[in-house]
Computed example of a mutant assay.
Amino acid sequence: MFGSRSSRGESVTCIACGESIPRSEAREYDKHGDRWDRRNKTFEHLCKTCFAELCQQPRDGLETTLDAAGAGEADQKTFLRRFRELSEGDARRD
Rank of each mutant, 00 (worst) to 15 (best):
M1P: 06
M1Y: 04
M1E: 11
M1C: 05
F2L: 06
G3A: 08
G3W: 09
S4H: 12
S4W: 07
R5Q: 07
S7V: 09
R8M: 11
R8K: 14
G9T: 09
E10M: 14
S11G: 00
S11Y: 15
T13S: 11
C14M: 09
I15C: 10
A16K: 15
A16W: 05
C17L: 08
C17K: 08
C17T: 06
G18P: 06
E19S: 13
S20A: 14
S20H: 02
I21P: 08
P22F: 06
P22E: 06
P22T: 00
P22I: 02
R23S: 10
S24T: 07
A26P: 04
A26Q: 06
A26N: 06
R27Q: 02
R27I: 03
Y29L: 14
Y29T: 01
D30Y: 03
D30I: 03
K31V: 00
K31P: 12
K31R: 14
K31Q: 13
K31Y: 12
K31G: 15
H32S: 13
D34K: 07
R35Q: 07
D37F: 05
D37S: 12
R38Q: 12
R38G: 04
K41I: 01
T42G: 11
F43I: 01
F43K: 01
E44N: 08
H45F: 15
L46P: 08
L46S: 06
L46G: 08
K48W: 02
K48C: 10
A52M: 07
E53L: 11
L54M: 13
L54Q: 14
C55T: 02
Q56L: 15
P58C: 01
R59C: 09
R59Q: 14
D60I: 05
L62F: 14
E63T: 12
L66Y: 11
D67V: 01
A68T: 07
A68W: 02
A68M: 11
A68V: 00
A69D: 10
G72P: 04
E73F: 07
A74T: 00
A74P: 03
K77T: 13
T78Q: 14
T78A: 15
T78E: 15
F79I: 01
F79G: 01
F79E: 05
L80S: 05
L80W: 05
R81P: 00
R82C: 11
R82T: 11
F83I: 01
R84H: 09
R84Y: 05
E88F: 09
E88Q: 14
E88N: 13
G89I: 00
G89D: 13
G89W: 00
R92G: 03
R92I: 08
R93S: 13
R93K: 14
